[in-house]
Design a protein around this nucleic acid. Sequence first.
DNA 1: ATGAAAGCGCTAACAA
DNA 2: TTGTTAGCGCTTTCAT
Lengths: 352, 352
Amino acid sequence: MPEQPRQQRIRSSPTIYDVARVAGVAPSTVSRAFSRPGRVNADTAERVRKVAAELGYRTNPLARALPTGHTSMIALAISDITNPYYFQIIRGAQAAAAEADYTTLLADAQESDRLEREALERAIPTVEGIVLLSTRMSDSAIRMMAKQRPVIVLNRAVADVPSVVVDHAQAMRHAVDHLCELGHHRISYVAGPAAAWADGMRWRSLRELAAERALQVRRLGPYAPTVVGGVAAADGLRHHRSPAVIAYNDLVAIGVMRGLVAFGARIPDDVSVAFDNIFGADLVTPGLTTVAAPLRALGSMAVHNLLALTRGAHDTTGEPVVLPTRLVVRESTGQRRRRCPAPTDTEACGPR
Amino acid sequence: MPEQPRQQRIRSSPTIYDVARVAGVAPSTVSRAFSRPGRVNADTAERVRKVAAELGYRTNPLARALPTGHTSMIALAISDITNPYYFQIIRGAQAAAAEADYTTLLADAQESDRLEREALERAIPTVEGIVLLSTRMSDSAIRMMAKQRPVIVLNRAVADVPSVVVDHAQAMRHAVDHLCELGHHRISYVAGPAAAWADGMRWRSLRELAAERALQVRRLGPYAPTVVGGVAAADGLRHHRSPAVIAYNDLVAIGVMRGLVAFGARIPDDVSVAFDNIFGADLVTPGLTTVAAPLRALGSMAVHNLLALTRGAHDTTGEPVVLPTRLVVRESTGQRRRRCPAPTDTEACGPR
DNA sequence: ATGAAAGCGCTAACAA
DNA sequence: TTGTTAGCGCTTTCAT
C-alpha cells in the first residue's frame, strides 16, 4: 500500500513555507505579508503575494488561530431558528459580522435550554464572542458564559452583561396612540409566556399608559407565543366587550384574529395590534397592524458591540442599548364603530 | 506594567500538560485518554479524567484540528436564510450534524452568488464538508468546490456531485391527482424563475401527466418565486377560464390567491395548489393545499451523506438521492363548480 | 500500556 | 525591513 499523508485534502495545500521557499524569503516574512502588510517592504510583499497566488496559497485560519486565539468567528445563539421573528435579526448580525470579516456560527437552541448550552459549549472554544438572542439560559448561566468569552445579550437585560433591547415603553405607546386615535379606549392585552422578559415590559408599559390616559385595560393570559396560543386567547376574548386587543407578538395576534373570525367577529371592527413585524405579518389576511422592532438593527448592533468587546472595549454605561420602534398600520385595525351617535370621548385617551 | 500572556482569556484554560503533570503521566497519555479511550489502561484513564475534570480541562478543538484536520464542523450554505422554505431543512441538517457531534456553520448567501462564494471561501478551511442548499453557484463552481472538500448538493442535480432532491414527478402527480378528483381537468401552471432547476422539473412532469391523462395544461410565467410574483401572475390568470392553478411554490400560490381574490374570485371556487409546505402555508387564509416536501428529511439526509463522504465513502450510484412528497389538503382547493348539470367527465383524468 | 519527540501552519518576540 | 527561533495545544509515530 502506498504511503499517504494522513489527510489527503487538508494537508495538500501549500503553506507559508512553500511560498517562502519559492519567493526566496523567510516564512515569517510571508506571514507578515499577509497578517500585517505594511510591516514589510512593498516590493517584497508584492513578490510574496504573487508567488502565493501562483501556488494557490491560502492562509489557514486554524493554524492562525492557534497561536493568536483570533478565529474570526462569533457565535449567535438563537432560541429557535425556525421562528420568523429572528430572520431579520440574523441577517443584520450576519451582515455586521461579515463586514468586519467575521464568520457567524449560528447555534440553534431549538427551544431547549440544554441544547442551547450544548451548542454553545461546542462553539465556545472556536469563537471570539457570543451573541445570546432571546436566550433560554438563566442569568447566572449567562454571567458564567460571559466570564469565558465576550457576550452580548439581545432582547433581554441581564445585570453586568452588556445588552441590546428594544424600547418597549415606546412600542406600547405607539400601539396605544394608534388605538386611541381610532377611538378605542378599552384594550385587552393578550400576554405571552410569563417567563418572557418582553412580556413583563409590555404589560408594565401598558398599565402605566392606562393610568396616564384613563384607559381601561386588562390582561389575558399567559398564552403560548404562537398562533395556537392566540386562538386560545380568542376564546377568552369573546366573552368581553372590548374589541381592541394588543397581542404579545405577531403570531399571537394572528391566532387571535383567526379565532375571533371563527367566532363570527369581523376585522377590523374587532381590531388587533401586535409587536415585532415578523415575516408573514403582511402575508396574513387581513394584514397585521404591528409595532415593528428594528430587527436588522438589533442584530447588527449586537454584533457591533460584541466585536468592540473582543477588541477590549468595556461596557461603560452598564445600561442596555435601547433601540426605537415604529408603528406599521395595516388592515387589522380600524375606526371604532359606534352603535349610537357617539360622544366626543376621544379625550379619554388623555394628553397627547 | 505587569507582564501578561498574549491572550488573557483563551490562553488561560488548562492544557493536556497541566493535566499530565497533576496526574503524573505523559501528555500523550492524556491525549490518548480523550481521543481514543481504550488505548489506555482503564485505571490510568480514570485518573486522568478525574484530574481533567478537577482542573476544568476541555480539549481545544483548534489545537486538535491543526494536526488532524478534523474540525467537527460542516458548512451549510443557503441561498437565503430568511426564506421560510429552508426552516425545517436547516433543522433537519442541524439535528443530523449535532447527533454526529458536528457543529453546523450556516452560510447565508443572501441571494447573491458572490456572497455565497465569499462566505464559503471563508468557511472552507475550517469545515470538513459542505452542503449546498439551493445554491446559486454554477455547476462548474460547485464541482470546483467539490474538489476541495466533500460536497452534497441539495435541491439540485449536478453531474459528478452527490445530491439530494425531492421526487418532483411524484409531487406533481399528487397535485394533479388531487385536482382531478375534485373534477378539474384544465390546469394553469404558474412558473417560478426560469433558472430554477425545480421549475423545469415541475413543468416537465405536468406536461407528461397532461399527455397521459388528457388534461389541458398551460404555463404562465416565469414569475419571481415570491408573493409579489404570485400577485402578478393572478393578473395574467384572470383572463382565462381555468380556475385550477398549480403554483411553483407556496409563496407564489399565496400571491396568486391574494391577487385572484382582489379581482373578485372566490377560493376555493378558484383553486390553488402549490409545493413545499413552508411555514405559513397553514397561516394564510384560506390555508394552502400544497404538496409537502420532506423538509427535515432533506436536511438530515444531506448531512448524513456528507458525513459519510468525509469518512471516505464514495458516491456509488452517481444518481441523486430522491425523497418522496406528500399531499396536504387545506382550504385552497375544492370541488369544481358546474354551472349546468355536469357530464360525468371525471374520466378526463384518465387512468388512476 | 506508556513515554519521548516531532510536527501541524502560523505568529511573534528577539536579533540582526 | 527581514530572518531566527520558539512556541500555540494536540496527535502520532516510534521506542520502551
